[in-house]
Amino acid sequence: MSERVLIVEDETKIAGVLSDYLAQSGYTVHHLTRGDEVEAWLAAHPVDLVLLDLMLPGKSGLDICRALRSGAPGLPSPAIIMVTARVEEIDRLLGLELGADDYICKPFSPREVVARVKAVLRRGGHAAGAAPAQAPGRGLHFDDAAWRASLDGQALDLTVVEYQLLKVLGSRPGRIFSREQLMDAMYRDERVVSDRTVDSHIKKLRRKLEERAPGQELIHSVYGLGYKYEPPA
């Protein structure tokens, strides 16, 4: 059975192109144009991933994302890739505790979108029926082909940006990375984001690492300099 993708996009031409590319890659694709239709539709038709536009008639993508991550009875929790044409919204989007797995800015290449969809679904994300993979060995391990990371053999459920951030920090234990260096590693398209975006991702990374290594602080703040990763004892 092919993986299912819901495109929520009010620009039908864009949705049509994405639908064609995703279908050619083997996905079963559905399309909605209004934000206020999404939750009821997903309650009856669970999918593996939602490509969710930020600006929608009826209900915004941010509000839909919050609802799908709320754990409300009857609502699924698929992987979510947020889509926006407003670069100035990216900092707000990433700084909030929304739970999106990735984001992409318009204009974009349809091939890039397909690649992002594949990467998120390979990692497992919140896809229906996905189970966290286990990896052997102690310490941090990274699988770039699947965008998966593990700590002491336990899979970490990371977004693409969190994966990139942890890989930078984990590649040089003990080295202090400035926020600017971390932003350069996380965002290679030269978009402008603020320091608090990095801080927000660090906060989420710490929480996820704490779940795997209770009582151990693995990412340390160095006042006035940045952050560093220290392996678990």
Rank of each mutant, 00 (worst) to 15 (best):
V17Q: 11
A133K: 13
A115P: 05
P214C: 14
I176C: 10
V87D: 10
L49P: 05
T28Y: 11
I202D: 00
H45K: 12
V168N: 04
A67K: 07
G16Q: 08
A128R: 11
A119C: 12
L62V: 14
D199T: 05
G61Q: 02
F108M: 12
P232R: 13
K204I: 03
Y21W: 10
L140F: 04
L6H: 09
Q216T: 13
G139F: 08
E190Q: 15
G137D: 06
A145Y: 11
V47L: 09
F108R: 03
D102T: 04
L151S: 02
K59C: 10
E37Q: 15
G74Y: 11
R34C: 09
I176Q: 02
L166T: 04
I80Y: 02
L75W: 13
L94K: 01
D20R: 09
L49M: 07
S150R: 00
A146W: 08
L156H: 02
S2F: 08
G35V: 06
A119L: 12
R138M: 14
G124W: 06
H201L: 13
L205R: 03
I104Q: 06
V117G: 00
M1K: 10
Q134E: 12
S109N: 14
K208F: 11
E230D: 13
A213C: 15
A155I: 11
L182V: 03
P173M: 09
M186V: 03
F142G: 07
G35P: 10
A119R: 10
V5S: 03
A131R: 13
V5D: 01
R175V: 06
L225Y: 14
S77K: 10
P57S: 09
D184S: 10
V198F: 03
L165M: 15
D184G: 05
G174E: 09
L51H: 07
S77W: 04
H141G: 14
L94H: 04
G224F: 00
L49R: 01
G58E: 09
Q216D: 13
P78I: 02
R92F: 09
K106L: 12
V113R: 00
V222T: 07
T33H: 11
E97Y: 08
V193M: 11
L54I: 12
I90R: 07
V117Q: 00
A100F: 06
Y21L: 07
L42W: 02
A44K: 15
A133G: 14
A146Q: 14
D143I: 01
D91K: 04
P57F: 04
R69W: 05
T12H: 08
V47K: 01
S77N: 05
Q181C: 07
E97D: 15
G74N: 13
Q216S: 14
L42K: 01
L62A: 11
E190V: 11
R206K: 15
E230T: 15
V222M: 05
D144Y: 12
D189A: 07
I7T: 01
R196Q: 13
K118Y: 08
I90G: 05
A131M: 13
I202W: 03
V120F: 04
L156Y: 04
R212L: 10
V5K: 01
P214K: 14
G61T: 06
G58I: 10
R188M: 07
